[in-house]
């Protein structure tokens, strides 16, 4: 779904950050910023909360841990057809450590990656929602919804703070 955006193009992350600060001072809401690499400290400037991906990681870890431990306990200790290995204890807990660990790591990693793809709406063949193809090369873009930009002078703020170009365009972001 395309929409009208005010787009400011920058060629350097430091000028970009400076411009974001200036825009923040006017109270205009920035829709999103696009860059070729992660910029340190931009989350705070844009008011993004810390992602909860790490919480998800913990939950997946717990699931993996329980599944792996239950699997071994069931197969070696609880099942009717458990194997008697030379009369040794059925539930030899120390032996379960490695597989429990591997199971935890496996489920956490896979769960995390799927969560990451899901929240970002990434999937094989997804169309990229980006303002300009060069944002993966050397272009930094601030996107503000036109309706949010109305009545403020963000356009002139951006161009007077190092933007190479500022324009209003219909794009799908």
């Amino acid at each position: 779904m395309s929409q009208k955006f005010v787009l400011g193009y920058f060629d350097d992350e430091e000028t970009l950050m400076h411009a974001i600060e200036k825009i923040n001072a006017t109270g205009t809401k920035i829709y999103e910023v696009y860059s070729p690499f992660p910029i340190h400290g931009i989350d705070d400037l844009l008011g993004y909360k810390r992602t909860r991906l790490s919480v998800a990681a913990f939950v997946f870890g717990c699931i993996g841990f329980s599944l792996a431990l239950f699997m071994q306990t069931y197969m070696l200790g609880l099942d009717k057809w458990r194997i008697n290995i030379g009369g040794k204890p059925y539930l030899a807990w120390p032996d379960f450590v490695p597989v429990t660990f591997e199971g935890t790591v496996l489920i956490t990693a896979l769960g995390m990656v799927f969560t990451f793809m899901w929240v970002n709406e990434f999937f094989p063949g997804a169309t990229e929602k980006q303002p300009h193809p060069r944002v993966t090369e050397d272009l930094f873009v601030i996107a503000i919804k036109s309706e949010d930009a109305q009545g403020s002078d963000v356009q002139s703020i951006m161009s007077s703070n190092g933007a190479m170009e500022v324009k209003e365009e219909e794009v799908s972001l």
């Binding site: 999103e32 910023v33 696009y34 860059s35 070729p36 690499f37 992660p38 910029i39 931009i42 989350d43 844009l46 993004y48 992602t51 793809m117 970002n120 709406e121 990434f122 999937f123 094989p124 063949g125 997804a126 169309t127 990229e128 929602k129 980006q130 944002v135 993966t136």
Partner: peptide, 11 residues
């Protein structure tokens, strides 16, 4: 996968 370089995606 539709990577777009947005600040959210980077974070």
């Amino acid at each position: 996968f539709g990577w777009n370089g947005s600040a959210k995606a980077w974070s």
